[in-house]
Design a protein around this nucleic acid. Structure first.
Lengths: 235, 235
DNA sequence: GTCTGGCAGCTGGTCTGACCAACAGGCAAG
DNA sequence: CTTGCCTGTTGGTCAGACCAGCTGCCAGAC
């Protein structure tokens, strides 16, 4: 006889599973409201506490969203999913992974290199946001905090221009821990002005390469730019 | 007067937030057990139902894990995060249509390209695992399932050879959602034998390039290999 | 001595029933 | 037509209870 191990799945998990499948399969349209907790209690034949635990799980995964507290949950739309918990998953991953800064920088180079390559391949690239941030940076002289913020927006705009949501997601997650170190490096500079000027020029050059649809050149420039940024931190 | 909107955060969310921060900050080491629900009830001064809702959220995010049902929760390890919620995030993204498969393939190219590049730069590369998998694939004729499994191990070995933990973690998450489509493509083949042969040769060529410390060539070969794999799926 | 059985005290899983605050709608008095 | 109240619904929270499964201890049987 070969017996098979007994499986015990908690009720809240089964409830969550069914709801999850209903959402992902599209039988509950994005944006529509979920049934009230008391209704679900009847539908599944479990107590409200059980239903609530299932809902908390769905909420944490970003498949269900509460616009305001105390308002009924809605099925998440695609865009909301990537903006919220999906990004958190990678933020948590990188924080718990405790990867050294050099690894994160390497990862960032790979992501952004691929992003600008993809952006350059597009027939019509939307780079308005990126260009706008370059202008912002041109207007900054020695305010490293403001510069760093513009820098974040610039690089995210680059990745957004690629139109690749997966790249964008991971980029969002990796940008944060790495940005902290950048800011520290900039702050440690005696005279930040020439450095900020140089970085701004590099940004402009990257945009130029993408506009010229030269993906290889753009990728090279991005990689050089990023590695240069963290050279000091990495020693 | 400029008033600021009143913020109301549910108790379960605040409990989850505190626990999450404790986990991510490392004050609860990975693998260690969380306090029992009744202890947390006392610590936070809330009812057990509230604590449980917070725990369900952490569990859904993958930060807390129950080995068996009815066993106390433990703090997750990084690898478990990439295998769990981060992977699910991609799966949900795909199913909800927030990102096409081609985006994930593109991401995978970027990650693996960077990985083999980094591996080639190392003075002494450890490619034994990758080579072993190539041998396994050489021994397979038409068993696509076994081939796919060896393929997974091969590509993970490549990324592991780069020594970059961040790349590895993200790769773990993206590999499976993408692998499902690969398997479907292979199954759809009338005669898989010549295809598997070709893929095996490509794998061997990639290993060769890394051993020759030619990162550029290795990256090119990896990218071509991966894109070729999914050409059918992408149409 | 070792092994067995059973008890006691944990844990998580679930339920019941209750109360409150916030919101939406209807309805009546101004 | 507005104001204001009343009511029913929703989510948020609580207290208390019970069960099932696990763990460790200890006494009795061999």
């Amino acid at each position: 006889m070969d017996f098979t191990e007994v499986v015990r799945r908690p009720a809240y998990e089964q409830v969550a599973e069914q709801l999850r499948e209903a959402i992902l399969s599209g039988s509950m349209p994005a944006g529509s409201e979920l049934p009230s907790e008391r209704e679900l209690t009847d539908s599944f034949g479990v107590a409200r506490t059980t239903v609530r635990e299932a809902l908390r799980a769905l909420q944490a995964q970003g498949l269900a969203i509460a616009d305001r507290p105390t308002s009924p949950l809605r099925v998440a739309r695609a865009a909301e999913l990537s903006a919220g918990p999906a990004r958190d998953a990678f933020v948590h991953l990188l924080r718990l992974g405790a990867a050294p800064l050099s690894d994160l920088v390497e990862l960032r180079c790979a992501l952004e290199g691929a992003a600008v390559g993809a952006a350059a391949r597009q027939r019509r690239v939307v780079l308005d946001d990126a260009r706008a941030e370059v202008e912002v940076m041109r207007g900054i002289t020695d305010d490293v905090e403001a510069f760093e913020e513009a820098d974040v927006r610039f690089h995210l705009a680059l990745v957004a221009a690629s139109g690749n949501e997966a790249l964008h997601l991971v980029m969002l997650a990796v940008r944060e821990p790495v940005g902290v170190h950048l800011l520290a490096s900039l702050r440690a500079l005696g005279d930040p002005v020439p450095v900020l000027r140089r970085l701004t020029r590099e940004h402009a050059k990257i945009v130029e390469a993408i506009e010229a649809h030269d993906g290889t050149l753009a990728a090279e420039r991005v990689a050089a730019h990023i590695r240069g940024l963290y050279k000091r931190s990495l020693g």
